[in-house]
Simulated scan of single mutants.
Amino acid sequence: MINTKIYKSVYQLAEKLMDADSKGNMQAFDALYAELKAICITNENTDKDHPEQWETLADFTAEMDEALAGYEKALV
């Protein structure tokens, strides 16, 4: 089960990432992506580590190899 606080943070960041992308605001997108990535890294290998955060990060990752690595972490 995903921590509610983390779920809300990931969900809100995903919405903001989609908004920044739709507006072509790459500066905001990059900052939001970094924030989402930091959540994933902070929670990695802890009791707060959850596949949803990794899958969401992978969904917004442009590089295919990096995205696949995120999806693989979500599967584990």
Score class of each variant (00 low, 15 high):
K73I: 07
N3Y: 05
K48C: 01
E55F: 10
N25A: 10
A74N: 01
M1V: 04
L57P: 07
E72I: 03
A69W: 07
F29I: 09
K8C: 08
Q12S: 12
A62K: 11
H50S: 13
K48I: 00
L17T: 00
A31F: 07
M64Q: 11
T4P: 13
C40Q: 02
L36A: 03
A58G: 15
K48H: 09
H50W: 04
K48R: 11
K73S: 10
T61F: 13
D49K: 06
A34F: 05
T46Y: 12
C40S: 09
M26Y: 14
D65K: 11
K37C: 10
L13P: 02
D47V: 06
A20C: 04
A28G: 00
S9R: 12
N3L: 04
K23G: 07
S22L: 11
T61W: 08
N43K: 00
D30G: 02
A62L: 11
N25D: 15
I2D: 15
Q27A: 15
T46S: 15
Y7E: 14
A58C: 05
V10K: 01
L17I: 01
T61Q: 13
A14Y: 00
L17N: 05
Y7T: 02
T42G: 04
I39G: 08
E35K: 08
M26A: 06
T46D: 14
Q27F: 10
C40T: 03
D59K: 08
K16L: 15
N45R: 12
A62G: 01
K23V: 01
N45M: 04
A20H: 05
L57K: 03
Q53C: 06
Y71Q: 05
D49W: 07
D49S: 11
A38Q: 09
F60T: 03
Q53W: 00
G70Y: 06
H50V: 01
K8S: 12
D30M: 11
D30Q: 12
A62E: 15
D47G: 08
C40Y: 05
F60S: 02
N3H: 11
E66G: 12
A28E: 14
E15N: 14
A58S: 15
L75K: 09
D19V: 04
L68S: 04
K37D: 13
T4H: 09
I41D: 09
F29Q: 05
E63W: 03
T61G: 06
A14P: 00
I6G: 03
K73D: 06
A74M: 06
A62W: 12
K23Y: 10
D21K: 08
A67N: 03
L36S: 01
K73H: 13
E52C: 07
Q53I: 02
Y33R: 04
I41N: 02
W54R: 02
M1D: 11
F29S: 06
A20K: 07
K37E: 15
I39N: 05
Y33M: 13
A14Q: 12
E55I: 06
E66T: 00
P51S: 10
Y33T: 00
K8W: 09
A14L: 03
A58M: 06
D49G: 08
D65T: 04
D59E: 10
T42H: 14
E52Q: 10
